[in-house]
């Protein structure tokens, strides 16, 4: 599977709240960030959690978020960030959400 995003792409995390085992924390859903690193493809843990093989593997990206984009009331300086690994099916380009 070829990766849909490259380092530097601005992305938005899907704003979805499915039941079951999910690896994308609540606090980043719907938020915008920047792809900071490519991680190797991995079997989808959201499938493997239920005993399935999770194949085909899913590209995983490190995505960097500005704290001010995550939290309306962030108390620290402008430059602070949070970075985490997000699977491709949780990401969309920024434009898709009407930005």
């Amino acid at each position: 599977m070829s990766a849909r995003f490259i380092v530097g792409d601005r992305v938005r995390v899907r704003q979805a709240y499915p039941p079951g085992h999910v690896r994308t924390p609540y606090y980043v859903r719907g938020k915008e960030g920047v792809v900071s690193r490519m991680i190797a493809e991995h079997p989808n843990p959201e499938e493997r959690a239920y005993g399935r093989d999770g194949l085909p593997p899913v590209p995983v990206y490190r995505v960097l978020f500005r704290q001010n984009d995550l939290w309306q009331d962030y108390q620290g300086p402008e430059g602070d960030t949070t970075e985490l690994d997000i699977q491709e099916h949780w990401l969309g380009p920024l434009e898709e959400d009407g930005e």
Partner: peptide
Amino acid sequence: ITLDEHRR
């Protein structure tokens, strides 16, 4: 088992 199953 997988660690994913364990977490779930």
